[in-house]
């Protein structure tokens, strides 16, 4: 049965770049846009998704023999909702400020397409090791995309990188406005849409170049 399906190691590698959930599959756009105005928010979000996706994928993989086709989406959603509640309570208890900043986007992980798609594509079909590695790979890919967007937005919008946790300041705050002023638009919604659009364009362009090079070789 597993003959047609990728091996666990392949699943892991594919999640990071070739099938990156955000940059290649364009899934889970809501959190990608909403939490990436600071690096801390992006990393916390990626951590929450890593936890929920890994637990849900492994549990669905264990429940595989019991799944009924017409009820599977409901089972996925309830499994995910349980783990999201755990993640949400954990953040509210130990990282209160971050939980306040992310607000409704942590519970919105329940309806994040990435997790339901992974449960459907991998968790409900393959064994536990494959499901686990697939979840970790996809989450790392998600973290990579979020980190890339958050880096652009935070550096251009605030002039800092991990400003609140590490206090790294890349662009000086004391320059006069004539030399460099923070781009407030990068923190606001339009900056999120434009950054993601340009990143998608760049990834597609690089992918096309690589493919062309491979064909000519």
């Amino acid at each position: 049965m597993d003959r047609h399906l990728p091996t666990p190691a392949e699943r892991f590698i594919r999640g990071i770049l070739p099938e990156n959930p955000v940059l290649r599959q364009v899934l889970g756009i809501c959190p990608t846009l909403a939490v990436t105005n600071t690096m801390e928010g992006a990393i916390t979000m990626a951590g929450a998704v890593l936890f929920v996706l890994t637990c849900a994928n492994v549990l669905v993989s264990l429940l595989r023999p019991l799944l009924k086709p017409h009820l599977r989406i409901l089972v996925f959603t309830l499994t995910i909702a349980t783990f999201v509640t755990i993640a949400d309570r954990f953040l509210a208890a130990y990282m209160y400020d971050m939980s306040k900043q992310l607000g409704p986007y942590i519970p919105l992980i329940i309806v994040n397409c990435i997790i339901i798609a992974r449960c459907e594509v991998c968790g409900s079909k393959q064994s536990v090791p494959a499901a686990f590695l697939d979840a970790v790979g996809q989450s790392l890919g998600f973290a990579l995309a979020l980190g890339a967007i958050a880096t652009v937005r935070e550096v251009l919008g605030f002039g800092t990188w991990f400003g609140r946790w590490l206090g790294i300041r890349l662009l000086p705050a004391t320059l006069s406005d004539r030399v460099w002023a923070p781009w407030t638009v990068m923190i606001l919604p339009p900056g999120a849409f434009l950054t993601l659009a340009l990143l998608l364009g760049a990834v597609n362009w690089a992918g096309a170049r690589l493919q062309k090079a491979e064909v000519s070789r």
């Binding site: 364009v26 638009v185 606001l188 919604p189 339009p190 900056g191 999120a192 849409f193 434009l194 993601l196 659009a197 998608l200 364009g201 760049a202 597609n204 362009w205 096309a208």
Partner: peptide
């Protein structure tokens, strides 16, 4: 539309401009 921006890319660019308008 430039080939690499076709599909979601250009949609997001437009969404960015619309978001600016909604601001």
């Amino acid at each position: 539309v430039p080939a690499s921006l076709r599909g979601p890319g250009i949609t997001l660019v437009i969404a960015g401009i619309l978001a600016l308008a909604f601001l």
